[in-house]
Design a protein around this nucleic acid. Structure first.
Lengths: 344, 344
DNA sequence: ATATGACTTGCATACGCATGCAATATGAAC
DNA sequence: GTTCATATTGCATGCGTATGCAAGTCATAT
C-alpha cells in the first residue's frame, strides 16, 4: 500500500490528483470527477479511480478545492461563554449535525477584553461559508453586521429585530407563560423573576412574557432581580435577596444555571424549603436540572430540533445572503420536576 | 470606502491582492509582502499598502495562502465528551490560547456510534497543521495513529506509552497521592476509590497511585468501584454501592463530576453526612466543585498551564513530526474544601 | 450509410497568494 | 567617477483542484 512520500522532516507529502491520474492513465479531471457526486463520469471509471485512490491513500486536498470552488464547507461558530452547560451541549449537537452534512466547525471563542473584530477577523479571511452565532451577548449590532455581512448567518437564541438576520430561537414567550401557568396551578400567587443579563433578548422575552402572564392570572410580582450574569453565583445572590424579603413563594429564574444556584442558596442559606416554601423554575433543561438533588422544573429548549432547523437552513441555502431572512421559533416543553410543588 | 463588489445573489466578492496592487501601482508580490512579517519590503511601502488595504477593505485570502504555503494555521481539536464540564473549560481556554498565536480551532466532536475514521477524515483532507486530542477514550491506538500520523499532534490528559506521541498531562500520581495523604491526615483509614472508565490512562494512573499510597500509609482500601462512565449518575451509583457496605469513611472519585454525584447520593439517599461520616474528594476542580453546596476537595488540573504548554509546543515546533516526542507532566494542586474533614 | 444526440473524457485555465530569482535602486567606500 | 554590497521590487511560476469547452465514442433513429 503505497503512501505519500515521507520527507526527512517526517512530514507526509500526500499524493495529488495529478499523480494519481498519471498512475492510472487518465486525466486529472477524471480523478476530480470521480470524487464529485453527480459529475459526468462513467460509473466504471469512477469505481476504478476510487479503488486506486483508496490503494494509494489519495484524498482530495480540501484546500485546493476551496480555492477553486470558493466554498470552504466550514462554518464559523461564535461563542462567548461555555460556562453555562447549555452551550457545550448545544455546540456538541450542532457540530455533529454539521458534520453529518459535510460541514466543519471552526470555533470562535470570543473574550470580553480585547478587540472582538480582531478575534473574528479569521471569519472573513477564512471565507467560512456560514456563521452561526451562539453568543447571547458580547456582540454589538455593528460587530454582528460586520461579521455576518455578505454571508450565510444564523443566530441561535438571540433575536435581532431591525437587522436582516436569520434567527433560530426557542419560543421564550411560550416557555415563560407555561412557567407562570404552572406556578398558578400550584397555588402560588406571589412570584418573582430573576434575570441574568437583563438586556439580552432571551431575557427580555422571558421576562416580559412572564410578567404579563403573571398579571393576567392575577398573581403578584413580588420581585424582579437582575443577576448581572448567567451564573450559579448570580442565582445565589438573587435568591438570597428575594428570600430575605420573605414575601415570595415561587421564583422563575431566566435560566437553569441561575435556578440551580438559587435552589442551593434558598435551602442552605435562607433556610427555605424548596419546593414547599418557595418553588423554583428555570429555563433550558440542562443536564444538571435532572439531577435528583435539584430536580428542577424547567422549560426545555429543544436542542435537537434547533440543530435540525439550523442544519436544514444551511443545507437548503435558505440562510444565504439575498434570501429573505426569517426568525424561527422552536417550541419547547415544560418539564415538571420536584423543585416546584403545591403550596404547603 | 470602496468595498468588494456585491453580485446579485448578495455575496460579497472580496478584492484580491492583484487588484489592490493595480490600484496602488505596485506588484501583487508587494502586497503579499506587506502582509508578511519579516518580508523584504520597505517600511514606507508596507505602510502605504496597509493603509490602502484598510481603505479598500482588503484581507488576504487565507485559503489561497494555505495552498501556496501548505500551512493552514488550523488546529484540529478532537473531543468526544463535552458533558463533563472539565472539557468545555479546557476547550475554551485552549481555543483562546491558540487564537492568540494566530491558530484557528477546527472542532471534531466524535460520536461513539459511527465510523470514527470517517468522522476524522476532514482532519486529513483539510491539512490541519496539528491535532490536539482531548478525548480520554474513544480512539483506539490505531485510529489515533491514523489521525495524527505525519503531523504535529498532542494528546491532552491521555498518555500513550508505546506510540511516539506528545502528551501533556496533569500529574495524576502527584494528585492521587496528595488525596491519599490528605485523607490520612484527616484520620481517615478506610478509603475507597471510584473510577470512571477503568481503562483510561488517567484513571489507571490515579487509581494505582492512590492504592499504592493508601497501602504505604497503612490505610485500608475498602472498595474499588468502576462507574463505567464519567458522569454524575455513575458517581451516584458508585457512592450508594460503597455506602451500603458501611465500612468506608473516605472516597476518592476519579474526577469531580463523579464526586459531585457521589456527594448528593451519600447525603440524600444513604443518609450519610459529608464530610463527617464520609469524606469525598475528586479530581479536576471544575467550577461546580467550588459551589458552596458541594465545596468539593479536589486536585486542581492547572488548565492555564496545560494550555500554555500546549500552545508553546505548537509555537516552537517541538511537536512537529520528526522531533522527539515527549510526555509533559504538569503539576497541579490540592484544593481543600469542606467535602473532606477530620473523622467525627 | 448518415445524422442526431447522449455520454465521457481530456485540455487548458482559473482560483489568490507565496516566493525564488533577476533586476533595479540606493548608498557607502575607494 | 567607479565599484560593490545591501535593500527593494517585480516577474514568473507553483500550490492542487474544478470546470467550460471541445473532442471523442457509441448507439439509436432516419
Amino acid at each position: 500500500m503505497a503512501r505519500g512520500v515521507v520527507s526527512s522532516d517526517g512530514k507526509r507529502k500526500p499524493i495529488t490528483a495529478r499523480e494519481l491520474a498519471r498512475m492510472i492513465g487518465v486525466s486529472q479531471s477524471a480523478v476530480s470527477r470521480a470524487f464529485t457526486p453527480g459529475a459526468s463520469i462513467a460509473p466504471e471509471l469512477r469505481e476504478k479511480i476510487l479503488k486506486f485512490a483508496d490503494e494509494q491513500d489519495y484524498h482530495p486536498n480540501a484546500i485546493a478545492s476551496m480555492l477553486s470552488k470558493s466554498r470552504t464547507n466550514i462554518v464559523g461558530i461564535v461563542v462567548s461563554d461555555m460556562s453555562n452547560p447549555f452551550y457545550p451541549a448545544l455546540i456538541q449537537k450542532l457540530s455533529q449535525g454539521l458534520q453529518r452534512i459535510g460541514l466543519q466547525s471552526l470555533l470562535f471563542n470570543i473574550t470580553k477584553g480585547s478587540n472582538i473584530e480582531e478575534q473574528l477577523s479569521a471569519l472573513r479571511r477564512y471565507n467560512v461559508d456560514a456563521v452561526i452565532v451562539i453568543s447571547a451577548t458580547m456582540l454589538s449590532g455593528a460587530t454582528l453586521h460586520w461579521a455576518t455581512e455578505g454571508r450565510a448567518a444564523i443566530l441561535i437564541n438571540r433575536v435581532v429585530e431591525d437587522a436582516d438576520i436569520n434567527c433560530v430561537c426557542c419560543d421564550n414567550v411560550e416557555g415563560a407563560r407555561a412557567i407562570a401557568d404552572h406556578f398558578h396551578a400550584l397555588g402560588r400567587r406571589r412570584v418573582a423573576y430573576v434575570s441574568g443579563l437583563s438586556h439580552t433578548t432571551t431575557n427580555l422575552e422571558r421576562q416580559n412574557a412572564f410578567i404579563t402572564r403573571v398579571a393576567e392570572l392575577g398573581m403578584t410580582l413580588t420581585g424582579r432581580v437582575d443577576g448581572g450574569e448567567y451564573s450559579y453565583e448570580a442565582g445565589r445572590r438573587a435568591a438570597l435577596e428575594i428570600a430575605s424579603k420573605g414575601n415570595t413563594d415561587a421564583i422563575f429564574f431566566a435560566n437553569d444555571i441561575l435556578a440551580v444556584g438559587g435552589i442551593d442558596a434558598l435551602r442552605e442559606d435562607s433556610g427555605k424549603r424548596v419546593p414547599e416554601d418557595i418553588s423554583v423554575a428555570g429555563f433550558d433543561d440542562i443536564p444538571m436540572a435532572a439531577w435528583p438533588h435539584y430536580a428542577l422544573t424547567t422549560f426545555r429548549q429543544p436542542l435537537d430540533e434547533i440543530v435540525t432547523v439550523v442544519v436544514g437552513m444551511l443545507e437548503d441555502g435558505s440562510c444565504q445572503p439575498g434570501q429573505p431572512s426569517s426568525v424561527k421559533r422552536i417550541s419547547g416543553g415544560l418539564i415538571v420536576r420536584q423543585s416546584t410543588g403545591p403550596l404547603a
